[in-house]
Structures are given as structure tokens and as C-alpha cells.
Simulated scan of single mutants.
Amino acid sequence: MKTAELAGKRALVTGSTSGIGLAVAQALARAGARVMLHGSRPAADAEALRAALAAETGTAPGYLSANLADGAAARGLVEATLEAFGGLDILVNNAGIQHVAAVDAFPDENWAQMLAINVSAVFHTTKAALPGMKAQGWGRIVNIASAHGLVASPFKAPYTATKHAVVGFSKAVALEVAEQGITCNALCPGYVRTPLVDKQVVDQAKVHNLPEERVIREVILAAQPTKRFIEADEVAAFAVFLCSEAARSVTGSAQLIDGAWTAR
């Protein structure tokens, strides 16, 4: 159901063709925002996704493709959104990658790629978005981090490092723009059933030499008090709140949505 909570706001959500990113884009559009989708889908698939969102919400979403591992392309994504929408009010840095392995067996190329997409892209898009937000005296930046931005798990040292970096970056940005009508927060989900988590299940099954159903029960959700995956629409609703006027004093924070996983 469409609301007017974010009517007139212009939003860019990176990595928004599936999983958490798509759920956030849909929720922002339902709240009235005009959304720029981002991903690497074939042209026909991207147009179908854009058209479906337009039909559901009555907004006019856009779609852009950019390789976020390249800093210039990440900045260009924001610049293209500014040109298409005439400004940018909301930036959701959602795109991220994962690879599970012991540190001494972790491929160097995966480490470099994870840093580029999970951390450097957040820097580049934020840097490109801030001048316009400062000029208009309003902005919302939501960086999708992870519960691993606050705690650690074995075989996830690089992922944990990148998400800790996103949390720290979000706090520092919030301090810089605290008097300019801009908020910046890290949203830290626990295990959400997405294509990324499905890949983790496969990787963890290899690491632990277990069937996938046992990995879900005995590894991924072993310490999860609620014993269920978090739904993407739960994360999306939280993101919409952080973009709202009601959350204007919520900034510089790492907001957990993890089913009490980190409460132990």
C-alpha cells in the first residue's frame, strides 16, 4: 500500500534488484519516494523490474547499472541519479558481496573485491551525494552493514572487517553533517534469507563438511534466539523509518535487527 510519508523524496538504492536492496527500494517507493534502482541485470530484466515497481506504486523509478568495484563508476552512479532526478535526498548503500573461508586460505582477489564493493563504494557514493544534500539542508544516508559490523564469526574475517568499517564510517559521517539536516546510520541485520545468504549456506557447507539443511540449523541459526531468518521486508521497513522525519534525531548509530543474536 502506498503512503505519502516520503512523497517528493528522491532515492538511490545500490544493489537493488534482489534481496534486501529490492525490498528497500519497494518500501521507499510505496512511501512515495522516486527510486533509482541499481544492479547488473540484462536490459529486458531491468525494464521489467522498473515497470513492475512503477505499476505497483505509481511512481517513476529509474534503473542504472554501474560496477561499484570501480570508484569512478560508483561516483558516476550518484551523478547520473542527480541528473535524472534533479537531486538526491536518500542514499541507501546496500550492495555487498561475501566469501567464506579461513584467513590463511582466503583468495587475495576476493579480499580486494570485498574491500572495493563493501567499503570503498560506500565512501565514493557518499562523497558524491553529500554536496547536494548539504546545499538543500536535508538528507538521509542508510548504509546496510550487518550484525557482523559489531561482532565476529569464524571464517568471515574479511566480511567482518568490511562491515565494521561501514559502521565506523557511518558514525564519522554523521558527526560531520550533524548540523546540516542530514542523518547517517548503519543498519545491521542478522541473517536475512537472500541470495547472498543462500551462497553463504553453500560455502559454509563446504567449510564444515555438512549438508546444507544442517548448516542452516546448526551453524547459521545456531545462536539465533528466534530460530528464524529475518525477512527482507522487516529490514526495509526499518530503512524507511530511518529516512523519515520521525528519525531526524537518529544518526550516527548502528541499528540492529538481528532477532537478539548479538544480545548473548
Rank of each mutant, 00 (worst) to 15 (best):
E83I: 04
R217S: 11
I20R: 02
Q204D: 10
N94M: 10
N143I: 14
S16H: 04
A60I: 08
P195S: 12
I117Q: 06
G8K: 06
L221T: 04
F229H: 01
R34F: 05
S253D: 01
R30P: 01
G181W: 10
K199D: 14
L196Q: 14
A72M: 06
L175A: 15
A74Q: 09
R228P: 00
L150E: 15
N118P: 05
T3W: 05
S65K: 12
I144V: 15
G39N: 12
G62C: 12
P225C: 01
A27T: 07
H148W: 10
I230N: 00
G137M: 13
V119D: 05
I182F: 09
I216W: 03
P158V: 15
V13I: 09
L68V: 08
V173I: 15
D108F: 05
Y159A: 08
E5Y: 00
Q204R: 11
Q180H: 13
G58V: 14
A174S: 15
L77N: 05
D108V: 14
G86R: 05
A102K: 08
M36E: 11
A55Q: 15
E5D: 03
I141G: 01
A80V: 09
V142Q: 10
V166N: 05
P211R: 10
A161N: 11
A27I: 09
E56H: 04
A29S: 10
V235Y: 00
D233R: 05
S120F: 07
D198M: 11
A121H: 04
F238N: 00
V92N: 07
E231S: 00
R248S: 02
G58I: 14
L37C: 08
D45L: 13
A51W: 02
A129R: 03
D258H: 00
Q136K: 14
V219N: 04
V167A: 12
V201S: 07
G168N: 12
T59L: 14
S249R: 03
P158D: 07
S170T: 15
N67Y: 10
P154Y: 08
I97R: 08
V13S: 01
P42G: 09
L64E: 14
A223V: 02
P131C: 11
A23R: 04
A129K: 07
L150F: 06
R41V: 05
L150M: 15
R30Q: 12
A74H: 06
L6F: 01
L130A: 04
L12E: 03
H208S: 01
N143V: 14
W111H: 06
Q98H: 10
E109Y: 03
A95V: 08
